[in-house]
Measured scan of single mutants.
Amino acid sequence: MQRVNMIMAESPGLITICLLGYLLSAECTVFLDHENANKILNRPKRYNSGKLEEFVQGNLERECMEEKCSFEEAREVFENTERTTEFWKQYVDGDQCESNPCLNGGSCKDDINSYECWCPFGFEGKNCELDVTCNIKNGRCEQFCKNSADNKVVCSCTEGYRLAENQKSCEPAVPFPCGRVSVSQTSKLTRAETVFPDVDYVNSTEAETILDNITQSTQSFNDFTRVVGGEDAKPGQFPWQVVLNGKVDAFCGGSIVNEKWIVTAAHCVETGVKITVVAGEHNIEETEHTEQKRNVIRIIPHHNYNAAINKYNHDIALLELDEPLVLNSYVTPICIADKEYTNIFLKFGSGYVSGWGRVFHKGRSALVLQYLRVPLVDRATCLRSTKFTIYNNMFCAGFHEGGRDSCQGDSGGPHVTEVEGTSFLTGIISWGEECAMKGKYGIYTKVSRYVNWIKEKTKLT
């Protein structure tokens, strides 16, 4: 034993070699072989497995989906700052455009905790909710729209109204504003409101030439003092309507412009014939205590009207009353817009006519005020429907199939267009061939041609 100890002390290297040989010859039971080890760690190889990531292109799944990435790591994937920024906006807080917040056709661009709407022409605001041009839906104005110097929408209202708090709607500024039905039992019968379409306001006024200088022999019209197929109006439903009495009662109609003036057809009036105007009328054979009678003290036909040349060209006249009318729910003026808007309103496509005229061709006159909704007829169809001249200051309205029309005794009465609950004068009943005849239409004086003249002559002093 002493000898062994001496050998170990003198030859430590020998001992180490012996131990190493023993270990190498022993069977290893701690580690699995290569094949079995792979069965336990069965993990798919990654895209760049075996390579240094710093030297390969980034992978979106590896960089940002398996674990949260930084902007720089995302930049490695896209290799483009702009594309990385677009991805980053949604990656950080989701897609803010998912709810489609942009209105009126706006395009949404996502941002971090926010979004941006790219608005089409005519709109602005956070969600493109603000109209900035009158060309689109009248700028959301209830009545009139004008573009300011910086191309912003400025709404306005006709006389007797003021802008509401929203700067879009119009509200009454006087007790009985024009064009409004205020009798409670008839307010439910107000005709369907007309909503502004998209309009090209630059070209809204037709490029028409008034044929002022045409000389033409007097034409022989049949029954051209021209509501057939209409309905009984309720008291106060058309408070701007008046009836004219002269040699015979209810020979023509008219509309209240203001307390002192009536507008009617020029062919209705004769110099030297006494005319009485009755406002607030409903049943011409009954006294309903809503009527107001006034005498006409002055007749002003349009300066281009000449019955000797043509009885229905420039067929418009103004009547001055001896005493002002007292405005109330049964006696209310009709609204008159400017030339541009009167023309736009007419193009809405349908209007209402009213009167006490004959209820059928050569038949009896109506006792109760009649009204009828009539569609506008395109000019080409209008011209083809008659052998008589249709001037540019006239328009056609009615039904091709016949059966409904204005008729004798309705002449001078109103053709009105309702705009968001307020009625505007767009025409004056003038003439036609018979009444409600198939293929024939009622012919009306186009008020847009005469609004400046009306307003100039009827100013209240």
Rank of each mutant, 00 (worst) to 15 (best):
Q2N: 11
N5P: 08
M6K: 13
M8D: 07
M8T: 13
A9I: 07
S11W: 08
P12C: 11
L14P: 09
L14W: 11
T16P: 05
I17R: 02
I17N: 01
G21M: 15
L23T: 03
A26V: 10
A26Q: 01
A26P: 00
E27H: 08
C28Y: 01
C28K: 01
C28A: 10
T29Q: 10
L32V: 12
L32G: 14
D33E: 07
D33P: 04
D33S: 11
H34F: 07
N36V: 08
N36D: 09
N36A: 11
A37V: 15
I40Q: 15
N42S: 13
N42I: 12
N42D: 15
P44V: 10
E54G: 12
E54L: 04
E54D: 13
F55S: 15
F55W: 09
Q57A: 11
Q57I: 11
L60W: 05
L60I: 14
R62L: 09
M65T: 08
M65L: 08
E66I: 05
E66F: 05
E66T: 07
E67S: 06
C69I: 03
E72Q: 10
E72M: 12
R75A: 08
R75P: 08
E76A: 04
V77E: 15
F78H: 15
E79R: 15
E79W: 12
T81E: 14
E82F: 04
R83I: 10
K89V: 06
K89E: 04
V92Y: 05
G94P: 07
G94S: 11
G94T: 12
Q96Y: 10
C97S: 02
E98K: 15
P101K: 05
P101H: 06
C102N: 00
C102P: 01
G106A: 07
S107L: 07
C108E: 00
C108Y: 02
D110K: 15
D110I: 05
I112K: 15
N113W: 04
S114T: 15
W118H: 13
P120H: 08
F121G: 13
G122W: 03
E124A: 14
N127Y: 12
E129Q: 10
D131K: 08
D131M: 12
D131W: 07
T133M: 15
C134T: 03
N138F: 04
E142C: 02
E142V: 05
C145Y: 01
A149K: 10
A149G: 08
K152T: 13
V154W: 10
C157R: 00
C157I: 00
T158K: 02
E159W: 06
Y161L: 02
R162V: 11
L163A: 03
A164R: 08
E165D: 13
E165I: 08
N166H: 02
Q167H: 11
C170G: 01
C170S: 01
P172Y: 05
P172N: 06
A173G: 09
F176Y: 12
F176D: 02
C178F: 00
G179T: 00
R180Q: 06
V181N: 09
S184W: 08
T186E: 14
S187E: 08
S187F: 11
S187L: 11
K188M: 11
L189E: 14
A192L: 11
T194H: 11
T194W: 11
V195H: 10
P197G: 10
P197V: 10
Y201F: 11
Y201V: 11
V202G: 13
N203A: 11
N203T: 11
A207T: 14
E208Q: 08
T209A: 09
L211F: 11
N213D: 07
N213S: 11
I214C: 09
I214H: 08
I214L: 08
T215L: 06
T215Q: 06
S217F: 10
T218M: 07
Q219C: 05
Q219W: 09
Q219H: 12
S220V: 13
F221C: 07
F221K: 11
N222E: 08
D223C: 05
E231R: 10
E231M: 11
E231D: 09
D232Y: 13
A233H: 05
A233Q: 06
P235V: 06
P239E: 00
V242G: 01
V242C: 03
V243L: 07
G246H: 05
V248M: 07
D249F: 01
A250Y: 07
F251P: 01
G253R: 09
G254C: 00
S255Q: 02
N258K: 02
N258M: 00
N258L: 01
W261Y: 07
I262A: 03
V263S: 02
T264Q: 01
C268W: 00
V269A: 08
V269D: 02
T271V: 05
I275H: 03
I275Y: 04
T276D: 06
V277E: 01
V278W: 05
V278L: 06
A279E: 00
G280R: 02
E281T: 12
E281R: 10
H282G: 07
N283P: 04
N283G: 07
I284A: 06
I284F: 13
I284V: 10
E286M: 10
E286L: 10
T287R: 07
T287W: 11
H289C: 07
R294E: 01
R294V: 02
R294H: 01
I299A: 08
I299H: 08
I299V: 07
I300E: 04
P301M: 13
P301K: 11
P301Y: 09
P301W: 08
H303N: 09
H303K: 09
N304E: 11
Y305P: 02
A307S: 11
N310R: 06
K311L: 09
Y312H: 08
N313M: 10
D315M: 00
I316G: 01
L318D: 00
L321E: 01
L321A: 00
D322V: 01
D322C: 00
D322S: 04
V326M: 13
Y330K: 05
Y330A: 07
C335V: 00
A337I: 00
E340R: 14
F345I: 13
F345P: 02
F345L: 13
K347Y: 09
F348M: 11
S350C: 08
K362G: 13
S365W: 09
S365G: 06
A366R: 10
V368E: 13
L369C: 04
Y371I: 14
L372C: 11
D378F: 03
A380Q: 13
C382S: 02
K387H: 15
T389F: 15
Y391K: 14
N393A: 05
M394D: 01
F395A: 01
F399I: 15
F399K: 04
E401T: 13
E401F: 11
G402R: 14
G403N: 13
G403K: 11
R404T: 12
D405Q: 14
S406Y: 12
Q408H: 13
Q408K: 09
G409T: 07
D410E: 14
S411G: 11
H415R: 01
H415M: 04
V416E: 02
T417K: 01
E418T: 05
G421F: 04
S423G: 11
F424L: 01
G427P: 00
I428E: 01
S430F: 04
G432A: 13
G432C: 12
E433A: 13
E434Y: 10
C435K: 04
A436R: 10
M437E: 13
K438L: 15
K438E: 15
K440Y: 07
Y441D: 00
Y441K: 03
Y441P: 12
G442H: 11
I443Q: 03
Y444K: 01
Y444W: 01
Y444P: 00
T445M: 14
T445F: 04
S448M: 03
R449E: 14
R449G: 14
Y450R: 01
V451M: 03
V451D: 02
N452Y: 08
I454A: 01
K455A: 07
E456A: 09
K457R: 14
K457W: 08
T458V: 06
L460G: 07
L460S: 08
T461P: 09
